[in-house]
């Protein structure tokens, strides 16, 4: 091109600008807590629409257990659960969004696995929901066990652990199958509904939610087998211990509050006259446990008062008070025979 010779200055100037542009924005990682505080907003990555976990309601307000966990972290850090900017992410986008600093926290029904914890620059802060992968089929197929699914077509969301478990399960049981992989969970449900697949597979909690999207929710049945362990939890960037601990202790505060019987209704009363020393420490009447984390001492009070305890979150979003009507199962407190266990505040 002749242009190079005739107008070298323009090219020089352009490349200089480019160089400048690449050097200017470089997000620093490390002090997420300070960043969130100075911004006054928590940026939280959630699912792009999964009933019970994160989906906008008819008024455009985000609802769900993952969403409420974001609100709990905002309440702990900023004292106000409404100071959250939600970023709806697909399964494929989620990790990149967190790695690149687009969100501070990923609370998006994400399974805690070794490779995600160890090779992606991420850290899981805890488990908000113990789940297992299940399979849903139409009742009229007359099937009662996943072992009878040899040769079936299976609708599955692309890029999930579900996709891998599916392959493992059918291989382990020496069965053949056809996977039809869709980009979003809504599309898997639509594909299943149209008859493209015999089976819809996902985490069983998601199946309960997707079932409500079908044209006839009563025509299907969720098979009893749970073919995998799916511990779902919040994720943060690796290398920021302080922020990871804030997120982790937000979860413990939710669990401890339920165990002590502290709810959003009685939290004021409990703070004014704590029943046990544990309650006094949790609610900031005794010690400086909030300050040790870089928060205010009423961090847990703010969470419980404005968002509720773990049991309230569960019942409201996925439990008896919700359309999903899931049992507590493994998500019951350890004291009720479940797996949820909050570390003591002391």
């Amino acid at each position: 091109m002749n242009m190079t010779i005739k107008r070298p200055w323009a090219w020089g100037a352009t490349s200089g600008l480019l160089l400048l542009a690449t050097m200017l924005p470089s997000t620093s990682f490390g002090a997420t807590l300070d960043e969130v505080k100075s911004r006054g907003q928590l940026r939280c990555g959630v699912s792009d629409g999964l009933a019970g976990f994160s989906s906008p309601d008819s008024k455009g307000q985000w609802q769900g257990i993952d969403v409420d966990f974001c609100r709990a972290v905002a309440a702990a850090v900023l004292g106000d659960p409404s100071k959250v900017t939600f970023a709806p992410l697909t399964a494929k986008e989620r990790f990149t969004a967190l790695q690149s600093g687009e969100v501070d926290l990923l609370s998006r029904n994400t399974t805690w696995t070794a490779s995600r914890d160890n090779s992606m620059g991420l850290t899981f802060a805890g488990v908000t929901f113990y789940d297992g992968q299940g399979m849903m089929v139409r009742k009229d197929l007359g099937i009662s066990s996943a072992k009878e699914l040899d040769g079936a077509s299976v609708c599955v969301a692309a890029g999930t652990t579900t996709e891998l478990n599916l392959a493992d399960y059918f291989r382990a049981n020496d069965m053949a199958y056809n996977a039809v992989s869709f980009d979003e969970s809504d599309q898997t449900a639509a594909g299943f509904d149209s008859g493209r697949c015999d089976v819809l597979t996902s985490d069983s909690s998601q199946l309960a939610a997707l079932r409500l999207q079908l044209s006839d929710p009563d025509s299907v049945v969720i098979l009893p087998e749970r073919i995998s362990k799916e511990p779902l939890g919040p994720v943060v960037r690796q290398g920021d211990e302080q922020w990871m601990k804030v997120v982790r202790w937000t979860l413990y505060a939710l669990l401890d509050a339920e165990e002590s019987g502290i709810t959003s209704d009685n939290v004021d009363q409990m703070r004014d006259s704590p029943k046990t020393p544990d309650d006094a420490r949790l609610l900031g009447k005794d010690g400086n446990f909030g300050e040790q984390m870089g928060l205010s001492n009423d961090w847990a009070y703010n969470i419980i008062k404005q968002v509720g305890n773990y049991g309230e979150l569960f019942e409201r979003n996925v439990g008896a008070d919700s359309p999903l009507e899931l049992e507590r199962g493994p998500n019951a407190l350890w004291s009720d025979g479940g797996l949820q266990y909050g570390m003591p505040v002391r």
Binding site: F95, S119, A158, S181
Partner: peptide
């Protein structure tokens, strides 16, 4: 869908 989708998400 396959490579820049599932493979990307499984390997990160």
């Amino acid at each position: 869908a396959v490579f820049a989708g599932t493979t990307l998400n499984q390997t990160g």
